[in-house]
Design a protein around this nucleic acid. Structure first.
Lengths: 106, 106
DNA sequence: TGGCTCTATGGCAATTATACCATCGATTGG
DNA sequence: CCAATCGATGGTATAATTGCCATAGAGCCA
C-alpha cells in the first residue's frame, strides 16, 4: 500500500471535483476561460458562493485565474478531465443498465 | 450546459471516490477482490466504518460484492480508475512543481 | 444447539461542507 | 473624488459526512 499521505492528497483533488456546481464550472471552463460573473450566472448561486467554489478548485490546483482590470478570469489548468468524465459517465451508464435490468425482470 | 441532473449524478460518483479510506480500498481492489476483514485491516479503521465506506462505493456503482460463506468479497466494477489516478497524480505533481518554484524563488 | 466469526445497520457525537448575507478592497468611469 | 461594479472574505445557520460503539443477522463448526 502506498503512503497514507498520497491517498489524502488524491482525496483532496477528488473532493474538489465532487460537487455539482463545481462540475458545472469545470464543464464551462473546458471550452474557454470565464470571469466570475459569467460563472455566477451559469451556476445560478450567490456570487460569494461561486467565489468559494472557485477557491476550492484553485486550491486543489485544478484551475488558475488571471486578472484583467476588475474582472478575474478562471481557466482550466488540467487537461485530463475529459477522461475523468468519460470514466464517470461509463459508471452512470452501467448503473442505469443494471437498474433497467431490475425493472425488466419484475 | 447539460442538465443539472447529470452534474448531480456525476458528483455522486466523484464524491464516492473522494475519501482517503475509500481510495485505499479502491487501490487494493485494483489487484484482486478482497473480503471486508482484509480491507478493515488495510484501512485500519473500525469494521463498521469500513463496511459503510464499502456501501458508499457499492451504491455509486464502483464496486460489487460476492458472498462466499461468511465472507463477502468486494471487487472493482470499473476499469477506468487507473486513468483517474493518473490524471489526479498529474495535478499533484504540477502542484508540487509550483510549490517548489515558489520556494526556489525566495 | 451454542458459540464463534464475519458483515451490516442504527444511533450518536463531532467534524466538515455548503449557502446566503453583509461587507470590504480593488478598479474603473464620470 | 464619488459611485458603481467585480470579486473575495467573515459570519452564521443548516445540512452532510464521518467514526465508533453497540448490536443484529447469517453462516459455520464443534
Amino acid at each position: 500500500m502506498k503512503p497514507r499521505q498520497l491517498y489524502e492528497a488524491r482525496a483532496k483533488v477528488a473532493k474538489a471535483v465532487a460537487h455539482p456546481s463545481r462540475l458545472i464550472i469545470l464543464d464551462a471552463l473546458a471550452d474557454k476561460e470565464m470571469c466570475v460573473c459569467d460563472l455566477t450566472d451559469l451556476v445560478g448561486a450567490d456570487q460569494s458562493t461561486v467565489s468559494k467554489h472557485l477557491a476550492v478548485l484553485k486550491n486543489a490546483g485544478i484551475v488558475a485565474d488571471r486578472k484583467e482590470g476588475v474582472m478575474i478570469y478562471y481557466r482550466l489548468k488540467v487537461g485530463c478531465l475529459k477522461g475523468f468524465w468519460h470514466c464517470i459517465e461509463g459508471v452512470l451508464k452501467q448503473n442505469l443498465k443494471e437498474q433497467q435490468a431490475i425493472m425488466g425482470s419484475s
